[in-house]
Design a protein around this nucleic acid. Sequence first.
DNA 1: GCGAGGACTTAGTAACGAGTGG
DNA 2: CCACTCGTTACTAAGTCCTCGC
Length: 750
Amino acid sequence: MNSDSDEPLSNRYSRSMSDNDEDEDELPLAQRRMPKRQQVSPAHSDDSDLPISRLNTSNGKRSRSNHTPNGHQRDTTTGNHRKRQRTSASSASIPNGKMSGVKREPKSQPKTEPVLGHRHTAVNAEPGTHRVPNGNGMSQDAPDRSNGASNGGYRWWDEKNMGGNKLKWSTLVHNGVVFPPEYVPHNKPLIYKESTISLGPAAEEIATFYAEKLGTDYVKRPKFNANFFEDFRASMKGTPAYAIVKKLEHCDFSLIHQHVEEYRRAKKAMSQEEKQAKKKLEEELASKYLYAYVDGRKEKLGSYKIEPPGLFMGRGDHPKQGKVKKRIYPEEVTINIGEDAAIPECPMPGHHWGAIVHKHDVTWVCYWKERVTNQAKYLWFAAGSTFKGMSDHAKFEKARKLHKYIDNIRRDYRNDWKAKSKEVRQRAVAMYLIDKLALRVGNEKGDDEADTVGCCSLRVEHIKFHPPSTIELNFLGKDSIEYRNTVEIERLAFEALKLFCRGKRPGDEVFHRLSVQGLNDYLKSSMDGLSAKVFRTYNASITLDRLLQETPSDMTPDELVVYFNKQNKEVAILCNHQRSLPKTHEAQMQKMDKKKNEIIEWLEELKRGKSALKRLKAGSSVELTKMRPEKPQFTEDMTREQRAEERKRANEAPRISTSVKRNLTQLETEIIKVEARLSKTESTMIMKDDLKTVALGTSKINYIDPRIVVAWCKKHDIQIEKIFPKTLQVKFAWAMETSEDFRFYEGMVS
DNA sequence: GCGAGGACTTAGTAACGAGTGG
DNA sequence: CCACTCGTTACTAAGTCCTCGC
């Protein structure tokens, strides 16, 4: 517990206003700085305080929906204590919102001299000097010892001093990036009130974006349609269509939609050779652009393509969904490259790069501003690159380090639930929720973004209290994914939380005194580099590590993989990683159910036969009735469609009763086999239904220390490819040599 | 000290294509 | 062999966290 005197005056002031007062009129202060507190000394901890899996909660039900769980929008006139209006104001800071022509430097100045892109004029380097040997700077092909690795097989994890540098590279050479091709009009008209309207190329392209989305849920959303139509109509300005096309309801995109469908069909129906040719073309392009040289090493990029134009597909209730994302031209793009490297030729004739910079402290090769959200977009290196690998490794080492501090941190936040200062109490309860429930921290969001929340931005309407100490959380989190969890929490935290909500309106923030910055600043005082997101990584990884320790020893490899996925699922549920219900899920379940019933039917027949046989003398056999599906009757001249039709008919036809003979030994072995098949079918069904809305991949890619997986695979003699697909093996190349003894929370470098 | 925005990670989904079982 | 499933990859939106400039 920190004493008042340790605090800056500003905090004391805010405390005097709020301490122990649960006044409903209490206004959030603009200042939400947290007091510094004494350093927590590291200590080892036991295995207590595991995060509680969502499965064990009284109500493990989770669902997903596209609407606000609470069914209503926050009252912005009364209950809005949130800082908003960030982006709208900022977009105005760029005059006219355009960059073209003017070579504009991105706001943050590079450490090295920036060079505004004047039509590929080489910068800093005198012509012809300090250049990589050949013209394009990509000649010195380092030998690729990589085995498909993204970084030429460079084993950075063998180096003494990996990462940690402010400067990320000394030399950077690449060939630039590729732009989406110009639009080629198809001249299919729009139908408006039953007459055809030919659109100019600009409007036609936008209409085509929309036609591509027909059939999806997006076009059912009023906001999506309204935003689209506004931009669509604006694109018609100056053409005759502008005077005619006034309402989306009267627009019929079916001719364009037809064209889109035809194009899709044709693409699908391409011959093998055509597909090959296309693939080859793509590979040729990739061979020029997909790799860059970092300090002389060949490193793979994540992508070399500027995003093509289209409609902005914002998730959830995004205010800007449906708006048109315009085509990006080189003038809007900033290239980051080494001073000595040749400046890549601008791939679009008649255009030039927006700017060329030499920022050694960042890892992107190109940057532009996306005009709908005003967000910066970058092209980065691939997941298996040295940059990403090092940073991934550092992320997990940081999470492992947290283990040394976690006991103290938990002890402290429990103590702080009783603190005098409300800010301290709010911070302590928020930390508890972040730790226990693996919640995201929840930054403030603007009015021009979907209304989603995390821990710090939780509102009163998101929590229900069920005494003595159970809370029911229901809110939309990242990507507007619903978080729904009813969970028992510690009594003191429950009481504190209830107090935070007392007298507030539904739209008020629960932790109105707490800021993300304040929370993270405080965490840093407990452990160097600690921030809220580390808890998610830590709890996800340590949960899996511990669960895997309990692996039964008598499992077959197949069973082990199933077992792994089951534990992986626990982690995914902890992190609330969801996916949408697969469209065919219901049908698949029905199919499996049918199969299961058929197995049961056959099993009963076998058992009936067995008991019948017992009444007969040894060596005799019995007649059984086996139901077989009808076989499809194909003829030579049948078309593809006819064959499919026939297959379907046979499948749906009543099964044919056949008679088979079995003796006792045959029966007994078959019963065992069929029982095994039945149990496998049943467990697959349960698993499938369990996982229908759970996404396992996200935790595997982002939260689970890959060394845990590698160690487990080695220990149980499971091939790594059963757990990690090829791309993950490349991404986690640094973890592949982990020994089977590896434990997430032991033996880490401090 | 604060807000804006820059840099980077994390996220779900659509498209693709390899594997598989009838 | 062929259709269908399912795992994988590509894509890009949406978070986190920190720095920068006022």
